[in-house]
Simulated scan of single mutants.
Amino acid sequence: MLQLASNNAEHHIAARGNDAREVIGVGFRLPDPRQRLPYLATRKANPVFQFAEALWYLAGRRDLEMIGHYAPSMRSSSPDGITLGGSAYGYTLFNPADGDTASPFDRVLELLRTETDSKRGYLPVFSASELAVSDNPDMACLTVLVTHSNIQNPAVEPVDSNIAAESLRTLYEHAERYRTVLYWRPIVPGLNDSDSDIARARELSLHAHATVFTGLFFRDEIAAYYEAHGLTMPYEETARRKIMPETAEQRILDAFERDDSWGALFRKTSCGVAYAQEEADYNGHYGIRELCDICPPEQVAKCRAAWLKPDLANVIREARGLGATGPIEVNDRAIVVEGLDEPPRYYLQHGFGFQCHDQAKPHHHRRHGRAPIGWKAENGNTGT
């Protein structure tokens, strides 16, 4: 990788005055997910600073007084010579936001204690106010996912979707050190899947580096909310996975195929994020080929080049170390294990860059990661 960047650089840049060489869209695979640290004898590491930086983050600080002692060069990133902004991730994570009494970190911890499978835990490290300063020397470098539903019923969606739409447009206009992804969700038949809703999503897709669409996590808690507020139930039953009926997906795909003015569209979040960052998907979704039929050809080629079926012996060693029980399989689509919850499965998935599924909760063809509601079952029937 170093030789490639040194000898065959595609771009020569000077980010914040530092000369650098870039090669865009390069992927590589480490067969052992625990061997992730590069050891470069010619590059001096400062382990004292690394420990100090970690403690600075964990303490929720943003002052220069402490971190500037270990890294004097960080002073040039401070607009006032006293504090830091975008790089002070810990300050954003571990301090209450304006008007709140608990930090985002504490809020997410409490959520996960009561809803262990929740995907609603959000830990922000980026503030929209960073965009208000045109010469901001310390903007967070990341991908910004902007959730937009266009649901008009305030009892279901109390936040005006125009706020998200305007935020997306502003973020995209100023995107230099970050990328924007339109997260079009949750799509619920009868609430926000009309022709005008789809047309609005198409227009917004032109203000994002990628667009991801998906359905509703209709859990028991949401069903209880609907019932308590006298709302019409969108589905007759709840599900542990997102509900995205086949007909709803097909209406979106038909609109996408009819109109070539759409931005890049994806079914899976990591696919959209990887495309926006010009990288191969880190979740190994290329193994689930039916997900790739709407992806840009150049992205499919990039994912194909990076996708590598892992060695079974390495998978078994890692999975057993995490507590997997029963047989362990590596097929052409995914690693299949038993006895592991989502976090250790994600560890394997991200480490090997290959899908990792639970034997007890199989992913079926064409509805990967979706609930069976609204899809034809094995016997030809359709879920409610």
Rank of each mutant, 00 (worst) to 15 (best):
E329L: 13
A14P: 03
L322D: 09
P31D: 09
V156R: 06
A377H: 10
L84Y: 00
Y275F: 13
M244A: 11
I198L: 09
I328Y: 11
G369M: 10
Y39A: 13
L109C: 02
Y225L: 07
A88K: 04
Y235C: 00
E221D: 11
K44E: 12
H11M: 02
L204F: 09
R62Q: 13
R29Q: 12
D341L: 07
L265G: 02
V330Q: 00
V26G: 03
R34A: 14
T92E: 12
E290P: 05
A59F: 02
N192T: 01
L191W: 07
E130M: 14
T116C: 12
V212Y: 03
A140E: 15
L40M: 07
L131A: 07
A20S: 11
I252Y: 14
P31C: 04
N381G: 11
N314F: 15
P38F: 06
Y347N: 15
P327H: 05
A305G: 07
D281N: 10
D160K: 04
T116G: 10
A280T: 00
E221R: 14
D254M: 07
Y235R: 00
L123T: 05
L204T: 09
S76L: 11
C356R: 00
L291P: 06
T269M: 06
V273W: 01
M74S: 04
R16E: 14
H363M: 01
R317L: 03
R169S: 08
A14G: 02
N331S: 12
G90I: 08
S78P: 04
L312S: 06
K268Q: 12
I82H: 15
K242H: 15
I151Y: 00
S134F: 08
Y282A: 03
E157M: 12
I373T: 10
V330S: 03
A377V: 01
F51R: 13
G321V: 12
A210F: 11
G86D: 00
A140L: 10
A239H: 09
E298V: 14
A9I: 10
T214F: 12
F218T: 02
Q355S: 09
Y183L: 14
S167E: 14
P310G: 11
E176K: 02
G369E: 01
R113C: 11
A45D: 12
E110Q: 09
L40H: 03
L191A: 05
N314C: 06
M74R: 11
R61H: 01
L253Q: 02
N136S: 06
T147N: 01
S134W: 04
S6N: 02
P124R: 09
L312N: 06
D19W: 02
Y282F: 08
A319G: 10
W307N: 00
I151Q: 03
F217S: 07
H285N: 08
T114M: 03
V125T: 15
S78Q: 09
Y235N: 02
P297R: 14
H364K: 14
P79V: 00
L340G: 08
P31H: 03
Q152E: 15
D138V: 04
S118G: 10
V144H: 03
P79Q: 06
Y225P: 00
P137L: 09
E246P: 00
R200E: 15
L191C: 08
E249Y: 09
G380L: 00
I24T: 15
E166N: 10
I294N: 01
R267Q: 09
Y172K: 02
Q250W: 08
V144E: 04
I222G: 07
R36V: 15
P96G: 02
W262M: 00
D160H: 08
P158M: 13
R367N: 13
